[in-house]
Design a protein around this nucleic acid. Structure first.
Lengths: 347, 347
DNA sequence: CTAGGCCATGTTCACGTGAACATGTCGAGT
DNA sequence: ACTCGACATGTTCACGTGAACATGGCCTAG
């Protein structure tokens, strides 16, 4: 035996104390330490204290891998999301993380490069098999309900109403929200309402467009050709430059607030006053909506509520070991009237 | 033996096939399956194919818990963040998730209720002990470098330059960015620049305020009392209502774009034209900045770059099994000139 | 032709935990 | 006083994996 600081073997160095280290120090069996960890009732207060002291002294924390292996549960949920930086996505995920934490669950985040079936499937693969106890799919755009290859028996909830009937879903009331927006504009006296639509492959975008069309038709109004956007402010701006040239356009319903922001920009630039010349309604009620110029009338989506309901529904499934295929929650989406809408200019 | 569908015991139902199920079906040993899983070289192509087929047939995916227990690594990184819904936070996290995925790492997201030491510590506790291989702290606001109780030997990186010297850090160049903003306004002819400051407990807010002050002093200008905000557009609006009343105010540097948005709102409302009467510069360059009215001159923070660098620095530490205490990366923060700044009005 | 070695594959074992079962102690009821 | 049982605590074992070591077949060099 020479120098004790052996540099022969790098020695992976166990990261922390294990349950048996604690047991040894406290002078009890490993099982008793486990009982203290899991807050079992049948431990003498004095013993419990001794174990807790030993834990503290060693900086012990249960090894989650071993625990997961033994129990088959990770106390974790997976969240699949597409573009996290978007307002709706990040707000929803924020609420999910928060709700999960309150329930003692960790969140595993997976950002899929594109919301195609393949990518989502690959993402699920990565999370599969006891890495998470359940899955929240926040954005599934182009993925269709049936193409979603889920690991068997993994509880799932989806924040996309198109999945209703396939998986439990939570979503804002797109249809009522969009209808209210259009009706509000018609009620102000506009002859018709133009649509700045979201991408065609988006479920919510389709829903909002459909509601817009239906509401106009029901009111017997002309249905103008929708202008296509991609959710971004830039696309709203580009669409706005076109719409601004058309004097017939007095009211625009934008499928989200970001596009509405770009639209406002284009209208200002073209010298068309909002709301005197053109009224604009958005969708989402992003935090900035009330401070745009003019403050934006919009349909509020309660992302926090959606996130909470998603977690609630998912945990219910996990705990009951069953799938609630046909359960779904619709969160109200009220119209928030601000200053971007007014009666049309006299003609 | 009666009915095979025993309903006597609920039978936890193993979620998926295990390595030995695959081995049995493929007619090889479990170790060989493991070799295929881990892409070891020494497997005959024919054997590999047989194993892959068996995996496919059984829908096998390696059990991450067992793997983590065996190897001591989860292939996961933890991300501690405060308010995920904020632009900077969500963009950074988005980039982190993306970079981590490219490296085969999963992301465990932890949203701390408040960025206090206790909360952060509790969050770390939850992630500790082989649940993650390393930690990215995106927001640590009130936590001081020394109060951060980290699990021993856990590699850490922090997106907060105040931690330089304690942990490796990545951050935008706050000082140069803020100085440029102030110099730009002075260069346009403004006598001085007012500050709409971030919360006092925020590190970046302090840095930006300090740079503003230093730049004014170096130019020999009067340093007006800063107005305090809390990062929110609402606080910017409230501050703006006060600033708008003061005809001396011709240039305002807002510590972030959200407050700048509220400020613009208040100025419009008060009838003060931007940029003719008052110039405004923001900080962050949020996606909406170029579509505000007027398009906002601001300092760009490259959150994507920050996220990528964070992951790079963290993985380097994980792989080399060492801590780079004094390493830090500063990402340039250039001034983006748009339409919200102009020379002061003639007096 | 044979020894040595290389390579594909198999066998054994421990990682840390918690469930199931086992043991031991002490108090109450007869 | 004895038995039963409630309760605190201990012992054994398997969860699925991959590292270390073991085996055996075949090719090549002498």
């Amino acid at each position: 035996m020479s120098v004790p600081t052996s540099n022969s073997v790098p020695a992976p160095r166990r990261a922390g104390a294990s349950i048996s280290d604690v047991a040894r120090l406290a002078g009890v069996s490993a099982q008793t330490v486990s009982r203290v960890s899991n807050e079992s009732e049948n431990v003498l207060p004095s013993t419990r204290q001794r174990v807790l002291d030993a834990m503290e002294q060693l900086g012990y924390a249960p090894n989650r891998a071993a625990r997961a292996l033994r129990t088959g549960s990770f106390a974790a949920i997976g969240v699949v999301v597409h573009r996290l930086a978007r307002t709706g996505e990040s707000s929803t995920v924020d609420a999910i993380v928060d709700a999960a934490r309150r329930e003692g669950y960790t969140v595993n985040l997976v950002d899929v490069a594109s919301p195609s079936s393949d990518d989502v499937t690959a993402a699920l693969q990565r999370l599969s098999n006891q890495s998470v106890d359940g899955l929240v799919i926040v954005r599934a755009e182009t993925t269709t309900p049936t193409s979603l290859a889920l690991p068997a028996r993994t509880p799932v909830v989806v924040a996309d109403s198109r999945f209703i009937g396939h998986h439990p879903a939570v979503g804002a009331d797109q249809v009522t929200g969009a209808s209210q927006a259009v009706e509000h504009l018609l009620g102000l006296g506009h002859a018709t309402v133009h649509l700045l639509a979201g991408p065609v492959e988006s479920g919510p975008a389709q829903l909002r467009a459909q509601a817009w069309r239906t509401t106009l038709e029901r009111a017997g109004r002309r249905v103008p050709a929708p202008v296509q956007g991609d959710w971004s402010a830039q696309s709203g701006y580009e669409a706005g430059r076109v719409l601004a040239l058309d004097p017939e356009v007095t009211a625009v319903f934008s499928a989200n607030d970001e596009m509405a922001t770009g639209l406002l920009h284009a209208l200002h630039e073209a010298g068309r006053r909002v709301p005197q010349d053109v009224s604009v309604v958005g969708f989402d009620d992003i935090p900035l909506a009330s401070h745009l110029w003019p403050p934006l009338t919009t349909v509020r989506q309660d992302f926090t509520r959606v996130g909470e309901e998603l977690v609630r529904l998912l945990l219910e499934q996990i705990r009951s070991r069953s799938a609630f295929v046909d359960r779904n929650v619709v969160v109200p989406a009220p119209l928030i009237e601000r200053a971007s809408t007014a009666p049309p200019p006299p003609r």
